[in-house]
Write a protein that binds this DNA or RNA. Structure first.
Length: 312
DNA sequence: GCACAGGTAGATT
DNA sequence: AATCTACCTGTG
């Protein structure tokens, strides 16, 4: 098996993915690398390299299909593996079926501004277990650091998907929960997890004792799925909602993090409201697609912060 | 040097 | 039921 990437121009088998909204580089970056997932890395040519489960791909805006996406895979011996990754990528990117028109953008001018600022932003459909791992490690960490934790967990404890070459490093899958159950907690700490290592170890042990629990949780209705996740060590309201939104397509989940608290205080006048109060407001105000609204608000606040830093 | 980072859980008021 | 703190570690 060779590990080299096929040149972009020699990938006739990977047709561009059509998109409802033409995409800009900034929106693509927000979509893949804006805090929903922690395994995408921007390359110098503005493409993104990343992966999920047993897949490893590169994605970029299509040259000859404006607004669309094209992608390539590592050279694999097996044609059926290529087909499987292509199909998986489409499901991963397509995400849950969202109804933007059900959001209250007609009456909510701030939401309308957030949507206009990031047209075409979507929710990914990531593997449930991986999403749980990523967000358990996300507590009081910046996205770059969460990505570093995931990279260390993968390279030290995950299966090799693409062997390294002289010109490119190997790509590893994230360790499964079964694999994590065999990793001593000190080794998890050595992946920069800090106090999160205890949570990961605790969840791994729980899942090892409860076969099928994760799958049942993934497929349960939102209220029951959330109640189940809240049993796990290190999983509270916010992380449970992130896992259900980004790892199970539950658009009614409305994660309330520090960014959303700031956004609600500044844009909606909810100064001094507690996280549970904000969560209640979000669910009732944004409705069945509240998770999508949350992602637009989140992207907007972070973009404002970055703009402020650049102009400082 | 020190506050802060896509929080959670247990103690304290 | 609200508020306070400890918990790891890297970054600005």
């Amino acid at each position: 098996m060779t590990a080299a990437w096929l040149p972009w121009q020699n990938v006739p088998l990977l047709p561009p993915l059509p998109l409802a909204h033409p995409l800009t580089p900034a929106v693509l970056a927000e979509w893949l690398d804006g805090g929903q997932a922690f395994r995408w890395h921007r390359r110098p040519d503005e493409s993104f390299e990343g992966g999920w489960a047993g897949h490893h791909v590169r994605v970029r805006l299509a040259n000859d299909a404006p607004g669309g996406l094209e992608f390539t895979l590592p050279a694999l011996v097996n044609e059926s593996a290529r087909e499987a990754s292509m199909a998986a990528l489409r499901l991963y990117l397509a995400g849950p079926e969202a109804d933007e028109d059900a959001l209250p953008w007609r009456s909510d001018t701030h939401l309308a501004a957030c949507m206009a600022a990031c047209p075409g932003l979507r929710i990914l459909r990531q593997p449930f277990g991986e999403t749980l791992l990523g967000f358990v490690c996300s507590a009081t960490k910046q996205i770059v650091q969460i990505k570093q934790m995931m990279a260390l967990l993968a390279s030290r404890h995950g299966a090799v998907l693409t062997p390294g070459t002289s010109v490119s490093p190997a790509w590893h899958a994230l360790p499964t929960w079964t694999e994590l159950a065999a990793v001593p907690e000190p080794e998890l700490r050595a992946c920069s997890l800090g106090f999160r290592a205890r949570h990961v170890a605790g969840i791994a042990a729980f899942l090892a004792q409860n076969p099928g629990w994760l799958e049942a949780t993934e497929h349960a209705a939102y209220p029951e799925a959330k109640a189940r996740l809240l049993v796990l060590p290190g999983v509270g309201e916010k992380i449970a909602d992130c896992v259900l939104l980004f790892g199970a397509g539950r658009l009614e989940a409305f994660p309330v993090d520090t960014w959303i608290i700031k956004a609600m205080a500044r844009r909606y006048g909810l100064d001094g409201w507690s996280p549970p109060q904000i969560a209640h407001f979000g669910r009732t105000h944004f409705g069945s697609q509240a998770g999508l609204a949350q992602q637009y608000l989140f992207a907007y606040e972070r973009a404002q912060r970055h703009a402020a830093i650049r102009s400082a």
